[in-house]
Design a protein around this nucleic acid. Structure first.
Lengths: 341, 341
DNA sequence: GAAAATACCGAAATGCTTTTCGGTACGTTA
DNA sequence: TAACGTACCGAAAAGCATTTCGGTATTTTC
């Protein structure tokens, strides 16, 4: 059987049970347990012993009802499968110590109706705030004005009165190209994913920023299609055929980069000696299992989640912000740009 | 600023506000809103209008306090990064309609102390039940007897008095090998991951079951090391050197299978014509991006999560079970075992 | 037209904790 | 000894919604 009853009296102990066992009033028991000082040491000891004996734990529901704060946040995401929400979720979850704040997870599956349902449920449960996580960095519709603070993470809100936190894709693109340049590359191409994604466009802007600052130009046109290994392979073949002189490739994602590496290998180009390749997202399972391992841009998503959670609670304490914050990204160097010793 | 106040009276409306506005008692307002029938139609209308006007939503905290049920479950996982917990989490999350039941997510990071903290927090919040999700299929320590039902998912509990739900790895191994046999293969090898994992050992048992039933024997020894592409590549090279006659390879994971495919390609063996390859886990991003796409065993993890959540609530209604349930797995056929037309 | 039944509504209890405030009992000061 | 202060404790309210049960007012029945 699913074990469900404590050995005790069948029911979880309440404060009044503790008080009775200790022979004091409920008020005194509460004070003793919460460390208030209007209680005699001996009494406190009796109460604590009683609480221990009954393995009493205060009912957070009653507590929250009174305090008006629940110590919970809702995390409303549009797709859990996505690789991006998970680190954000982790960051939000541990922004405070274990067990201090708890996260209600809601997956709307990209469905607006479902999202409204979840939203209502969260408000009914009196969450202290809500974090909305999108699956792309394109702006998403605002939830409007709610009785609790809302922070938009990854996908910013389309309303500048909301607070959004999103990775700085433009800086990422620039960082990638600057790294290739610092590795001595000057004939750099860009293979990216779906141009309908703001992420793809922003990263390209960053790439151009970096090239321009170095007085360089992109080799060929930026290549867009989908975020897949297959496209990476095909695009690399195309690129090498038209521009065999290329010596560095900035890829829009690690998946694309994996495909690019495959094709380079097939064509007998060695990485990073002949061509340096850099990915984007730093998706460990892809980046560390390729030959050679993949240099990539990491969007610091876990940090982003932490920041979002913190913002929710500082908003509660009335330090309110708005607009879109861009979270810095970082470069993770591996063998696809720097030869292994 | 983070938008936080409804345009209204600064405070969320309570039932008593509604009652006052409608000119009825609190009791009547409650009945009207909850569809109880001891209230006149005209009165009900007045109340509902008032509720609408104040955009009243009942406080779940108060409701739960009274009902003794919160409509929440805790999901205690040991690593969120893991690829396995996510589908389980999704399944648990949507086991009931949107917004009916909510999931508290807790990531213990594999730390027992942290797990205890989270557990305590969940119990304080009076969750109706707890789902414990491990990252491997090896048995994990039981949480012991708790005041709410507990279901162990993926990683079973080491205590048979608990209820555990885990994928049937042995059946998966057998299914994989049977599929290869049905594709006309008879010289089958097995490359797997870390033998410290029960998953690796169980899958091998299943592979042997399948071979034995067909009167076949494994080609060479089963090869164990780690769950990585690198190992898959190395192992395949070794295997082909010693047993060039091999015509089918059951891999312990999709990662390993990817590595195997790489090596086969390097060695000029075509897949699936010369050698058929099957992976395990059906990790989409790996399986659908390889050349050829990878046939794999899917553990139905989302279904597993749904089942776990359902079990928690049926346990509440006193239909209690124990022991370990094995969740069936399924075969997903792609190009690495059946030639594409 | 009187008795009984029905329909509708409200006071109050319930669930559990925290906090305020009033009250003993004891000791201290003049 | 009278007046006062201190230390400790408990009754009660607050937080919000649900439910029971008793009570009017209205209708039905004979």
């Amino acid at each position: 059987m699913v074990r469900t009853e404590s050995a005790g009296p069948g029911r979880t102990a309440t404060l009044s049970d503790v008080a009775q066992l200790a022979g004091v009033s409920i008020a005194t028991a509460s004070k003793a347990i919460n460390g208030r000082d209007e209680v005699a040491p001996a009494t406190r000891r009796r109460v604590l012993e009683a609480a221990e004996q009954l393995s009493f734990t205060p009912n957070q529901l009653a507590r929250s009802l009174l305090a008006g704060r629940t110590g919970t946040v809702g995390l409303l995401t549009s797709d859990l499968e996505g690789r991006f929400v998970i680190p954000i979720l982790m960051g939000a979850e541990d922004a405070f110590g274990a067990g201090q704040v708890n996260v209600f997870l809601c997956d709307a599956r990209g469905d607006a109706i479902r999202e409204q349902h979840h939203l209502k449920a969260l408000l009914n449960r009196r969450v202290d705030g809500i974090i909305v996580v999108g699956r792309q960095t394109d702006p998403r519709p605002s939830l409007g004005t709610l009785p609790v603070p809302v922070v938009y993470a990854y996908a910013p809100s389309d309303d500048q009165n909301d607070l959004s936190i999103t990775p700085d894709n433009r800086a990422g693109g620039r960082l990638a190209v600057e790294h290739l340049i610092s590795c001595g590359r000057s004939r750099i191409a860009h293979i990216s994913g779906d141009p309908a994604y703001a992420a793809a466009r922003d990263r390209l802007l960053g790439v151009r920023d970096g090239l321009q600052a170095a007085g360089l130009e992109l080799v060929g046109d930026a290549m867009f299609s989908v975020w897949s290994e297959h496209w990476g392979r095909d695009a690399a073949a195309l690129l090498l055929a038209q521009h065999p002189e290329v010596d560095g490739i900035v890829c829009g994602s690690d998946q694309i980069a994996r495909g690019v590496l495959d094709t380079l290998r097939d064509l007998g180009r060695s990485v990073p000696e002949d061509v340096a390749v850099i990915g984007y997202d730093n998706w460990e399972v892809l980046a560390t299992n390729s030959r050679p391992e993949l240099t990539s841009i990491d969007a610091n998503l876990q940090q982003l989640g932490r920041t979002a959670a913190k913002r929710v609670f500082t908003a509660l304490d009335d330090e309110q912000r708005s607009g879109t914050e861009y979270q810095p990204v970082r470069l993770v160097i591996r063998g696809s740009t720097i030869p292994r010793r």
